[in-house]
């Protein structure tokens, strides 16, 4: 506009303000933001706030007691154990699957990709049922397992299996598009330069995919700790033994023990929030490196 002024009175009439392709009118913008924020508030912030207020409704000491009670501690321990086994397993499986899908052409590749998505499309309850049918007392492998004194269903192995099944797609789904987009030029360059297979993976491929891998692992972890349906079928709900945190919450809730239920629920929500905070912190801390990796 300063340019226009300098032309003075003899300047041709000012052109109408340029049409802004990437901007909408004030009203539309405000409406869109309001809808997004309103939705977020109604469906995310409000429930979280309710969980927290209900958790502390009977005071801090009741909250602490609900979390330090032996059954609650056992549930927390079991949840963390199951996640600690399932997440590394899926990290490994996801890496292998993404590697072979992104790097090689083979028969049945599209079938494999579809299969990886299966846990997303199948109800978790069915996943749990499958394991009961396989390893349960009357299942296919049940008698054999029983004669060898191996317990899978209603024990930690069953819970881990169900968790692995449900969280399988997270790492692979995050890595496949990333690796396909990045191509294998850098790997080829490394091979010609003399890198061994292991050096290739550690020094070239892993650094290239580490952010995608991290996101995948964080999401996988959040889901592993929060999984309810599949675990519910295989766990047997034995208090202090096979109850994970989500199952413990349900039991407390069904017993009208609201304060305790919400206390454990708030801890579960806090674990998820911690995951998100870690992710944001890492993004912020390594913003430059992240940008460099993407831009190239």
């Amino acid at each position: 506009m300063t340019l226009e002024a300098s032309f003075g009175a003899s300047a041709p009439p000012a052109p109408p303000p340029a049409y802004q392709v990437r901007s909408e009118s004030r009203l539309v913008r405000a409406a869109l933001i309001a809808v997004a924020l309103g939705f977020l508030g109604l469906f995310l912030v409000l429930p979280l706030a309710v969980v927290l207020t209900r958790a502390f409704a009977s005071g801090v000491s009741a909250y602490a007691a609900a979390l330090t009670e032996p059954d609650a501690l056992a549930a927390i321990r079991l949840t963390l154990t199951a996640a600690a086994i399932a997440v590394p397993l899926n990290l490994l499986f996801g890496l292998c699957a993404a590697w072979c899908i992104a790097r090689f052409e083979f028969r049945g590749k599209s079938v494999l990709i579809t299969l990886i998505d299966l846990p997303f499309s199948v109800s978790p309850v069915i996943a749990g049922m499958v394991y009961v049918l396989l390893f349960g007392l009357h299942g296919w492998l049940g008698p054999w397992l029983r004669s060898h004194d191996v317990q899978i269903i209603f024990a930690l192995p069953g819970i881990v299996l169900a968790t692995v099944f449900v969280t399988f797609p997270f790492v692979a789904r995050e890595l496949i598009p990333l690796m396909q987009e990045q191509g294998s030029d850098e790997e080829e360059a490394a091979v010609v330069l003399g890198a061994s297979g292991w050096q290739l993976f550690l020094r070239v491929t892993l650094p290239k995919i580490k952010w995608g891998l991290l996101y995948g692992v964080l999401l996988c972890n959040a889901r592993a700790m929060g999984e309810f349906g599949a675990v519910s079928v295989v766990s047997g709900h034995i208090r202090g033994q096979t109850n994970t945190m989500p199952l413990h919450v349900e039991i407390l809730y069904n017993e009208y023990n609201m304060a305790a239920a919400f206390a454990v629920a708030s801890l579960l929500a806090a674990l998820a929030l911690v995951t998100l905070v870690i992710k944001t912190l890492l993004e912020w801390r390594y913003a430059d490196e992240l940008a460099a990796t993407r831009r190239h």
Partner: peptide, 25 residues
């Protein structure tokens, strides 16, 4: 020695580490 059309430089490494790669491995 192979030079790729789109360079295929290791994007997460400095120029120094890129050039040194063949010797370091």
């Amino acid at each position: 020695g192979f030079v790729f059309q789109h360079y295929a430089l290791f994007r997460h490494m400095t120029i120094f580490d890129n050039v040194a790669f063949g010797l370091q491995v």
